[in-house]
C-alpha cells in the first residue's frame, strides 16, 4: 500500500482546471525548457495526442505545454496567457492535434529549437495527479519522472563512459536515486538519465563534459 504525504492530498497548489491536463502538461513543457537551458528558444512545435488532443483546448493543455516551454511553473497564473507571452518573446510556435494511437492517452510531443540551433524532441505523458513521465528524447526511448533533479547526457555508445561519469558524481558526493542508460543502436547515439537527490552543481556538470570522451551534451532537467 502506497504511503501518501499529507501534501499529496492537500496540494499541490496549481493553476487549474486539471492536474493531469494542465499541471502535468506544464511539467512536460518545463522539461523541454530545461533541456534548452539558459538559451533563448527560437521555436516550439507541440503535438497533442489522445485525451490531450480531444479535451486539451478546454483544459488549456495547449497553453499549459507552451507555458512550460517558456519556463512558467505549474503555480503561475500566467499559464493562461502563454500564447501572448510567446509572441512577445518572439518564440515561434505551433500546436497540432493528432489522432495517432499512443501508449498513454495524455501524451504530448514537443520539438524545441534554441536560437543557436540546438534542437530537442521529447515525448511526455501525464499519468495523473500532475505526475509525468518522459518516454522519449531525440528518438530514444527513455523513462524518467522529473520528480528528482536529473541530468540527461547524450553521448556515443562506447565502453567506459558510464563508469567515468559515475566516478565523477561519486567525487562530488551526489547521491544517485535512479540511473538509466538508453541507446539507439550498438555504438550509436546513447542517452543516460541520472536522477539525484540534490541538483548537481553546474561546474561539476561542466567537468563531466570536459573530462569524459564521447559526451556530446549534458542537460540539467
Amino acid at each position: 500500500m502506497k504511503d501518501f504525504s499529507v501534501f499529496d492530498i492537500i496540494g499541490p497548489r496549481m493553476v487549474g482546471p486539471s492536474s493531469s491536463h494542465t499541471a502535468g502538461a506544464v511539467r512536460i513543457g518545463l522539461i523541454a525548457h530545461r533541456l534548452i537551458g539558459d538559451e533563448h528558444i527560437k521555436s516550439a512545435d507541440i503535438t497533442l495526442y489522445g485525451s490531450f488532443a480531444e479535451t486539451g483546448i478546454g483544459h488549456g493543455t495547449d497553453r499549459a505545454v507552451l507555458a512550460g516551454i517558456l519556463g512558467i511553473g505549474t503555480e503561475d497564473p500566467r499559464i493562461r496567457y502563454s500564447v501572448l507571452l510567446a509572441q512577445s518573446e518572439g518564440v515561434e510556435f505551433a500546436v497540432h492535434k493528432s489522432d495517432r494511437e499512443m501508449n498513454h492517452p495524455n501524451t504530448a510531443r514537443i520539438v524545441v529549437e534554441s536560437v543557436s540551433g540546438r534542437k530537442f524532441e521529447i515525448v511526455g505523458t501525464s499519468v495523473g495527479g500532475g505526475n509525468i513521465e518522459i518516454v522519449e528524447i531525440n528518438g530514444m526511448e527513455v523513462s524518467f519522472t522529473g520528480d528528482y533533479p536529473a541530468i540527461v547526457l547524450f553521448y556515443r555508445d562506447v565502453p567506459g563512459v558510464i563508469s567515468k561519469v559515475t566516478s565523477i558524481l561519486a567525487e562530488t558526493g551526489a547521491n544517485v536515486a535512479f540511473m538509466k542508460v538508453f541507446r539507439s543502436a550498438k555504438r550509436m547515439d546513447a542517452c543516460m538519465v541520472i536522477e539525484t537527490d540534490a541538483p548537481i552543481p553546474a561546474n561539476e556538470i561542466e567537468r563531466i563534459k570536459q573530462s569524459v570522451d564521447g559526451i556530446k551534451e549534458i542537460c540539467a532537467v
Binding site: I10, G11, P12, R13, V15, G16, P17, S19, T22, G60
Partner: peptide, 21 residues
C-alpha cells in the same frame, strides 16, 4: 470557477473538487 478559469487553486484532494474544503 477559479479552477475552471485557469486560476490558482489547491488540489484538495483534486483540482476538480478543490472548492469543498
Amino acid at each position: 470557477e477559479v479552477n475552471a478559469s485557469m486560476g490558482k487553486i489547491v488540489a484538495a484532494p483534486t483540482a476538480g473538487s478543490s472548492g469543498v474544503i
